[in-house]
Design a protein around this nucleic acid. Structure first.
Lengths: 146, 146
DNA sequence: TCCTTAATGTTGAGCGTTCAACTATCACTG
DNA sequence: CAGTGATAGTTGAACGCTCAACATTAAGGA
C-alpha cells in the first residue's frame, strides 16, 4: 500500500512537472509562486510572506526569485518600512507567462487525477489530505527557519 | 482540493526525505534502490531491470549507482552474456546501511500517514492510488527511455 | 557477411533544492 | 544609548535529477 502510494504520487508529480516544464519552461514551484503573487494585492508580497504561503524555505524562495527575476517574471523592491525586507512583484511578463501556462497545467492535473477518480474518491482524497496535514505539526509553518 | 493534495503530499515527501537523509545519510531514492536489490536473488540485478522496478530512468539509476558505489553500498559487475550489460550488486555494507535505516524510515512513514488515518481511509487511499496508476499509461514502464 | 536498427548503459551540462554560514536590520532590555 | 538576541533575506557549495548526446554491443535482414 505504501509502495502503491509512492508510485502513484511520484507519477502524478513527475507528469505535472514534465508537462509544465516542456510547455511553459517553468517548474511547478515557480508556477505556484507566481500564482501566490497574482492573487496578492498589487501582485506584491513580502518575501517572507510569500515563503510562508508557498511553504518554501526562505533560501529556496530567494534562489527561485533570483532565477525568475532573470527571466523577467518577477521584480524585487525594497521595503521602506523595514530596511531588511524585500518585496517580490509579479511583472506583466510574469503574469502573461502564468496565463499562458495555466490551461495546460490545469488540464494535466485534471487528466491525471480528477478524470481518473470518481466524485466520491475525490471527496475521500480531499479529506485524507486534510487529515494528514492536520496530523503533523507543519514544519513549514510560521516558525519555519532556513 | 488540488492545493490540499499538493500540500499534503509535498509535506509527507519532504518529511520522509528529511528524516532518512538526516538519520541515515541517504536519499529516499537510494533507499528504494537498495530495497529492490535486497529482494533480488544474490542481491543482484541488471541495471535495466533495476531501473524498471524502481521506475527510474536509466540515466538516473546510473548516476545513483555511481554515487552509491562511491559510498561502498553497491558494486557493478560485468554481464558475461551481454557485453553491454551490467549488474548492480548490493554489498554487505550496503545491506547493513539498509538494515540500520529501515526502522526509522518505517516509523516515519507510519507516523506521517498511517497513524493519522483511519483504517477505512487507508483502504480508500490504497484504491485511489491504484486507480490513478491504472488510469495513466505509465511512462516509466518497460518502454521507458533515458 | 555487411549494414542497419535497436537496446544497454554512461556521461556532462544545466537546473533546482538543501544546508549551513553570513550580512544587515530590528526590537527589546538594561 | 549601548548591547543583545531575534528576524529578513542572501549566498555558495554540495547534491540529485533531467535531458540530450554518446559509445558499445546485439539482433535481424539483404
Amino acid at each position: 500500500m505504501w509502495r502503491n502510494y509512492m508510485a502513484a504520487t511520484r507519477m502524478v508529480d513527475s507528469e505535472i512537472e514534465r508537462q509544465l516544464q516542456r510547455d511553459s519552461g517553468m517548474p511547478t514551484t515557480y508556477y505556484e509562486i507566481m500564482v501566490s503573487l497574482s492573487e496578492a494585492p498589487d501582485r506584491t508580497l513580502r518575501m517572507s510572506e510569500l515563503a510562508d504561503r508557498s511553504r518554501f524555505s526562505r533560501s529556496r524562495l530567494s534562489h527561485a526569485v533570483a532565477r525568475m527575476e532573470q527571466e523577467g517574471w518577477v521584480e524585487r523592491r525594497d521595503c521602506p518600512s523595514d530596511k531588511r525586507g524585500a518585496f517580490a512583484v509579479l511583472t506583466e511578463k510574469g503574469f502573461g507567462a502564468l496565463v499562458s501556462a495555466a490551461p495546460g497545467h490545469v488540464a494535466q492535473v485534471r487528466s491525471l487525477l480528477f478524470d481518473a477518480l470518481s466524485e466520491e474518491q475525490v471527496t475521500q482524497l480531499g479529506e485524507i489530505c486534510a487529515t494528514v496535514r492536520k496530523a503533523s505539526p507543519d514544519p513549514f509553518g510560521p516558525g519555519c527557519v532556513g
